[in-house]
């Protein structure tokens, strides 16, 4: 029996193709990119060995620093926004709407599946000032705030970016955390209520601690995505004004494909990889829990 389930020929047929494709198209290029970091040039001009030149350049490159900073800033702000809004939505579903939350859940989830490019272009128009004030501008001005062109300043662009990405994905985290909240035994909450815990205190001391694992899992998933942000930025602000909203992903893309610097592009990609792996590792440690068993 063991020997049958360990049949080598079957293993080769079942796992072989996937592993081969994955190795050739993902693993080998990853190593190859690491190799590029020691070279200068591109396919057309040819490559020359440059030692640690690219890393030295990265160390002194102001633009790379600001891209790294933007990546962190965006990652933290949007991840906190996504998980927080998701949690509030989940509380709304479980405690306020209760049995009748299915329709609202479905509705709020819808933007999750929309193409990012479509959503970004829509938000561009919502916050546009020409040819007419977009709907969002009109609403903001109706509240008595006159902002002007959101995309003319780095701060304004960042704000629209955050609002967009939270709007786009909060339904996703809402459902994710909602499923976690449903796992809390009804009796636990009921008995806490008997003991007089209501409102904020019930949330703070009973619901939040019991749902902490799913909050952490959401945070890991969220930060893993937001650190890699590309589509939203490219489609909404194109990294601008100037390079004010350029994350590492976009900076790498520009360096490699607009300026044809493969070596330096790979170095930036490697930095991004280190950041992604490092942050995930820190959160895993912090949570002391294996999210794959989740």
């Amino acid at each position: 029996m063991r020997s049958v389930l360990g049949d080598r020929r079957a293993l080769l047929i079942l796992l072989g193709p996937a592993l081969l494709v994955y190795t050739l198209v993902m693993l080998v290029p990853m190593g190859w990119s690491l190799g590029y970091t020691f070279f200068k040039g591109n396919v057309i001009e040819g490559f020359t060995f440059d030692g640690f030149g690219n890393f030295e350049k990265l160390w002194h490159d102001q633009q790379a620093h600001s891209a790294l900073w933007f990546t962190f800033k965006y990652g933290v702000v949007v991840s906190v926004g996504q998980v927080l809004c998701g949690y509030l939505l989940a509380l709304l579903y479980v405690f306020v709407l209760r049995k009748s939350s299915a329709l609202i859940r479905t509705l709020v989830f819808f933007p999750v599946i929309l193409p990012t490019v479509a959503v970004a272009l829509m938000f561009q128009k919502l916050f546009a000032v020409a040819p007419q004030n977009g709907l969002a501008n009109t609403a903001v001005e109706a509240l008595g705030i006159h902002h002007g062109d959101w995309f003319a300043s780095g701060g304004g662009s960042f704000l629209v970016l955050v609002v967009m990405d939270v709007w786009r994905s909060m339904g996703f985290y809402g459902v994710l955390i909602y499923a976690g909240l449903l796992d809390i035994p009804e009796e636990t909450i009921e008995s806490a209520r008997m003991d007089g815990a209501t409102g904020w205190r019930l949330i703070r001391h009973v619901v939040l601690p019991l749902s902490w694992p799913v909050v952490l899992a959401s945070a890991v998933f969220s930060i893993n995505g937001t650190l890699k942000v590309f589509d939203s930025v490219l489609a909404l602000t194109n990294g601008g004004p100037g390079s004010d909203t350029t994350p590492l992903t976009l900076y790498m893309f520009r360096t490699a494909f607009s300026y044809g610097d493969y070596g330096y592009g790979s170095t930036i990609a490697s930095l991004l990889t280190v950041v992604c792996l490092g942050v995930s590792l820190i959160i895993f440690r912090f949570s002391r829990r294996d999210p794959t068993k989740g």
Binding site: Y22, P29, S33, A256, S266, C276
Partner: peptide, 16 residues
């Protein structure tokens, strides 16, 4: 090895 493919950003495979 497969987990690596989930964590590592796509930028790492584009150039090769």
């Amino acid at each position: 090895a497969f987990l690596l493919g989930i964590m590592v950003p796509s930028q790492m495979i584009l150039l090769p």
